[in-house]
Computed example of a mutant assay.
Amino acid sequence: MKKNAHLIKNFLEIPACNDIPAPLWYQIRDAPAQTIYPQHKHAWGEFIYAYHGVLEVNVDSIHYLTPPPYGLWLPPHLKHSGLNRTKVTHCTVYIHESLCQEMPKHAGILLSSALVPAMMEHLKTTLSAEINPDEHLRLLHVLLDQLQHAQVIGSYLPSSSHYLLEPLLEYLKQNPSDHRSQAELAKQMNTSERTLARYSQSELGMSLHEWRQRLRIMQALPLLEQGHTVESIALDLGYASATAFINLFKRWMGLTPDQFRKTFSAP
């Protein structure tokens, strides 16, 4: 996060969890906006799931985002830090290295079955209830089994330090409503469309078009939580109509913006 230090210098540092009492354990936290978790590591792998908001995690200068209903996997002994630009409610399932033989060996977003979000919601609703500890442990083992079968992908919104892509990606983050074509953007960067397409695929693992769609989804999430109308968000992101934005959102998130708001926004 050093390259963004000027943006987060006023963020409040909050302690990471290093006192983990069991081989398989979970913790739910409400993190205020503009806070950071300092860099740390331990012998537990972490499955991080955001109920509300988007937690940002930095691993070796790779930037991971955790938009619900996806979760982030961090293997044991991996140094990482966290950043909360907005208020985030998230759960971390801690899995000791002795239980991680079947878990992915690299960090990434886990695309799990529909059962996992349901189990995470159940963990949240029963946290303060007087539930038999053995029952909770059985649930965590079922969750572990589901996570072992999940597909792992890279960061939802990859970054790049490439001399050509880095300034362009930063520009697009600041100007998400810019709908110029890839050819027009390439001309702005004094390169060819073909070269820009090649670098996007090799550096980001996806086309620039897909990256821009993901960016707009990520920028829409906090606006939805803050109560902005779908129409105003669509306008901010450069869409001519709310319908076009709704179709994009549903294609990527599986829900309409209003459905997502009702499901994942804080009460």
Rank of each mutant, 00 (worst) to 15 (best):
Q259F: 09
H63S: 13
P67A: 01
M120L: 07
A107D: 05
S112W: 07
E166P: 04
W211P: 11
H52P: 02
T191M: 13
P75F: 06
L208T: 01
E231F: 02
Y49E: 00
I95T: 04
P21D: 13
A5R: 09
I131E: 08
P23D: 14
D30A: 04
F249N: 09
H90T: 01
Q148R: 14
E46L: 12
L83G: 08
G154L: 08
A43I: 03
A129C: 02
P67V: 01
A114I: 06
A266Y: 11
H6S: 11
A186N: 05
R212W: 04
I14L: 11
T66K: 05
A150M: 14
C100H: 10
M189V: 08
G45R: 05
Q213S: 00
I233W: 01
E170F: 12
I20D: 07
S98N: 09
Q27S: 07
V54Q: 02
I153G: 13
T35Q: 10
R138N: 15
Y51T: 04
T125G: 06
G108V: 03
A43Q: 12
L127R: 08
R214W: 02
P15T: 00
T243F: 08
L115G: 05
Q226G: 04
A114K: 11
R194E: 03
N132W: 08
Y49R: 10
E166D: 14
I36D: 03
G71N: 07
Q259G: 06
L157Q: 01
N10L: 01
Q34F: 05
Q219V: 03
A50P: 14
A33P: 15
L224F: 03
N175R: 14
Y49H: 12
S181M: 04
E13K: 13
S207L: 05
P69E: 07
V230Q: 11
A16M: 02
V54F: 00
N58M: 06
N132H: 10
P167Q: 06
R261I: 04
P69T: 02
Q259M: 14
R261L: 09
L140F: 06
T35K: 13
L72M: 13
M253S: 02
S265M: 07
A150D: 14
C17R: 13
P15C: 02
C91Y: 01
Y51K: 01
S113H: 13
S232N: 06
L237D: 01
F245E: 04
E121C: 00
V59N: 06
G53M: 07
K3F: 12
